[in-house]
């Protein structure tokens, strides 16, 4: 497999895994919670590394998931005191957890295989060199990993589509009908954490957050129904992966950063030209209406 293909596939798989979850974060107004969770998993990674000396996927994912839950529970606990608004609670909890992680890295794990650079902003350019031997065939490690996470997210949506849909749309109705919005919400955020931590070493925290948020927000401007929103969001993830890669190669710039920029560019285009919600589109409609409204008025005078 060529390096180019490996990188694009890795980013595309991330775009898929994240694009599946993103729409629900946007609809549930949990975008920033997902950003918080993506950062808060760092101490989980560090602790697992300190305890087991490994970055093996399964223990790291468990450690990350534990801290994702700690982060969410902590934010909720603080918010539920009624003394702090939820935005401030988020702004208090996740930097604290992240600071713990940074201290752990700099104090105990520096110089070993765990450095901040690769954890936080990763370097997707190196993914082709991290390989696994599977039945004598060399496989780029990120592909089966992200593939598994994507499959997990697909499974989550396929199994609980109805539940996720109803808790997103009308949480109190769901609760009355025996579906716990809290449980569903936790599941989604744990999935976010797993996606984030798996993608960390290949693409880094920043690109994960970007892939979770930007394609979904873009898709929200373009679609009015749930399933199309999810699919378009995944599609924009792929567009960002491919477009970003070619941009990065031609400009010799950061690949992850370029992908994020392409995603953001898609958003800006949608913001301006989306059929129903775009600024330009709406300005045109408004101008037409206004002239229509003025005509009878003028005719009257």
């Amino acid at each position: 497999m060529s390096d180019d293909l490996a990188i694009i596939l890795t980013a595309g798989l991330l775009g898929t895994a994240a694009g599946l979850l993103g729409p629900f974060l946007v609809l549930r107004r949990q975008v920033l919670l997902s950003d918080a969770v993506s950062h808060a998993v760092l101490p989980g990674i560090v602790i697992v590394f300190l305890l087991f000396g490994s970055r093996a996927p399964v223990p790291v994912i468990i450690g990350a998931a534990v801290f994702a839950v700690i982060c969410v529970l902590g934010i909720e606990a603080i918010r539920n005191t009624g003394l702090v608004h939820s935005d401030a609670a988020i702004g208090l909890v996740f930097p604290t957890l992240f600071a713990l992680g940074v201290l752990g890295v700099t104090e105990f794990a520096e110089g070993v295989h765990l450095d901040l650079d690769s954890t936080i902003y990763g370097e997707i350019a190196f993914t082709p060199f991290r390989t696994w031997e599977v039945f004598g065939v060399e496989v780029v490690r990120s592909l089966p990993l992200l593939g598994a996470v994507t499959a997990l997210n697909v499974l989550l949506l396929a199994l609980f589509w109805k539940e996720i849909k109803v808790t997103t749309f009308d949480p109190s109705f769901a609760r009355v009908n025996g579906i716990s919005p809290v449980v569903i919400s936790r599941c989604i955020l744990v999935a976010v954490a797993i996606t984030a931590v798996t993608a960390f070493e290949s693409v880094g925290a920043i690109l994960v957050v970007t892939m979770l948020i930007v394609p979904a927000a873009t898709s929200y401007l373009l679609t009015v129904r749930l399933l199309p929103m999810v699919l378009v969001s995944v599609g924009i993830g792929w567009i960002s992966a491919m477009g970003g890669y070619s941009f990065a190669i031609s400009m010799d710039a950061s690949i992850g950063g370029s992908m994020g920029m392409v995603a953001a560019a898609c958003f800006v285009l949608a913001l301006l030209f989306a059929p129903r919600y775009g600024f330009v589109t709406r300005a045109l409609v408004r101008a037409r209406r206004r002239s229509a409204a003025r005509k009878p008025a003028e005719a009257g005078t």
């Binding site: 948020i213 930007v214 994020g260």
Partner: peptide
């Protein structure tokens, strides 16, 4: 995300 990607 957008600004930070641009920054990188």
């Amino acid at each position: 995300s957008g600004f930070f990607s641009l920054g990188i």
